[in-house]
Amino acid sequence: MTYAIEVSKLKKHFGSIEAVKGIDFQVKKGSLFAFLGSNGAGKSTTIEILCTLLEKTSGDVTINGYRLGTMKDNDRIRQSIGIVFQQSLLDKELTVKENIIHRGRFYQLTKAQLIENYRFVWQYLKLGEIENKKYSQLSGGQRRRADIARAIIHKPSILFLDEPTTGLDPHTRKFVWETVERLRKEIGMTIFLTTHYMEEATNADQIVVIKKGEIIAQGTPNELKERFASDQLVLSFKKEIDIEHISEQIGCEMVQFGDVYKVNIPSTLHAIPIIERIQPSLASFEVIKGSIDQVFIQINEEAGDINAT
């Protein structure tokens, strides 16, 4: 198994405060990895360490084969990663093209490489209509496209996205994710994502959830849904029913919400025998799949209060 990122026993202390408490995880090359946590969970601290912006207290981190912590390897790590921050780093008075070309020079690209790489980002981010506009003149969605172009002008093998679609309209969010997926599938770029939109984590290959500096769950979206969320069968009846009798018939507890009843089921297929048993009384039914939002809420509730000392 080849990993783009390997983290072992990573810790970060700020005085007596343990922001990160010995966490372990791996990110497969070419995968979409989702790193989730509420505010104060240690998510941002971990990302800043991985991006060489903050020194770790202890532990081992390897990124693209380089060991974090030495000046030489830290420089190599920075050359191989791209970062899209929540706040832009671009100059408002420069055009999009000027900003991106200027950023490209930080990576000591040759003139030929810079021209080639600019064509690369121009194509992926559809910059034709905005490249000659000042950054200050752009809409929120256009700014985000320019931010991503800046982050990948040197063609990094890993792209860190820190809540990249917060505040964007649905159309722009869709465009951002289509672009990210193309980068991953077409050139094998590894994507490390944090997000407040839980549905964006649904497409991840791996999810890690952190709370108060500790990892409280990790797995694929389906694995986490199976462990922490259930599907729901929503039932509507033709007339008033004897809820205790119906519950005995189906062998499950029913909970009333307004004029419908809900039954938690392990999977969609488990709805079939329930419906068959009570079909004469049914007016309608619907199966609602367990969501990643449910997963996130349940994981945090089950984790309880982890000591922050």
Score class of each variant (00 low, 15 high):
Gln142Lys: 05
Lys155Arg: 15
Tyr118Ile: 08
Ile130Arg: 04
Lys155Asp: 02
Gly128Asp: 15
Arg150Met: 06
Asn132Gly: 01
Leu159Glu: 07
Arg143Thr: 02
Tyr124Cys: 04
Lys155Phe: 00
Ile152Asp: 02
Asp147Val: 06
Asp162Asn: 08
Arg150Cys: 07
His154Val: 09
His154Gln: 13
Lys155Glu: 06
Glu116Arg: 12
Leu138Ile: 06
Arg143Cys: 01
Leu161Pro: 00
Glu116Asp: 13
Ile152Tyr: 03
Gly141Trp: 08
Arg150Val: 04
Glu131Ile: 07
Ser136Val: 02
Asp162Tyr: 09
Leu127Asp: 10
Leu138Arg: 11
Asp162Ser: 10
Ile152Arg: 02
Ile130Tyr: 03
Ala151Gly: 03
Ala149Cys: 11
Leu138Thr: 07
Gln142Arg: 04
Ser157Ala: 14
Glu131Ser: 11
Pro156His: 15
Pro156Val: 13
Tyr124His: 12
Gln123Met: 09
Asp162Ala: 09
Leu159Tyr: 03
Leu127Tyr: 04
Arg150Asn: 09
Glu129Tyr: 01
Gln123Thr: 09
Lys126Thr: 11
Ile153His: 06
Ile153Pro: 00
Ile148Ala: 08
Arg145Glu: 05
Ala146Thr: 06
Arg144Asn: 08
Asp162Ile: 10
Asp147Tyr: 06
Asp147Trp: 10
Asp162Gln: 12
Tyr135Ser: 03
Glu163Arg: 12
Asp162Glu: 11
Ile148Leu: 12
Pro156Trp: 13
Gly140Asp: 09
Glu116Trp: 00
Tyr118Lys: 06
Pro156Lys: 14
Gly140Thr: 12
Arg150Ser: 02
Glu116Pro: 00
Pro164Gln: 13
Ala146Pro: 00
Gln123Tyr: 08
Lys126Val: 07
Ala146Val: 06
Ile158Met: 06
Pro156Thr: 14
Ala146Trp: 02
Leu159Trp: 04
Asn132Met: 06
Arg143Glu: 09
Gly141Lys: 14
Arg119Val: 00
Phe160Gly: 03
Asp147Gln: 11
Ser136Gly: 02
Gly140Phe: 11
Ile130Val: 13
Gly141Ser: 12
Leu125His: 04
Phe160Ser: 06
Ile148Asp: 04
Pro164Asp: 12
Pro156Met: 14
Leu127Thr: 03
Leu159Lys: 07
Pro156Tyr: 13
Arg144Val: 05
Pro164Arg: 14
Ser136Gln: 15
Glu129Ala: 10
Leu125Cys: 13
Ile158Trp: 10
Ile158His: 07
Lys134Leu: 12
Glu131Leu: 07
Leu125Asn: 01
Leu138Cys: 04
Lys126Ser: 13
Ile152Val: 11
Ile158Cys: 07
Leu138Pro: 00
Arg150Trp: 01
Gln123Lys: 15
Arg143Leu: 01
Leu159Met: 09
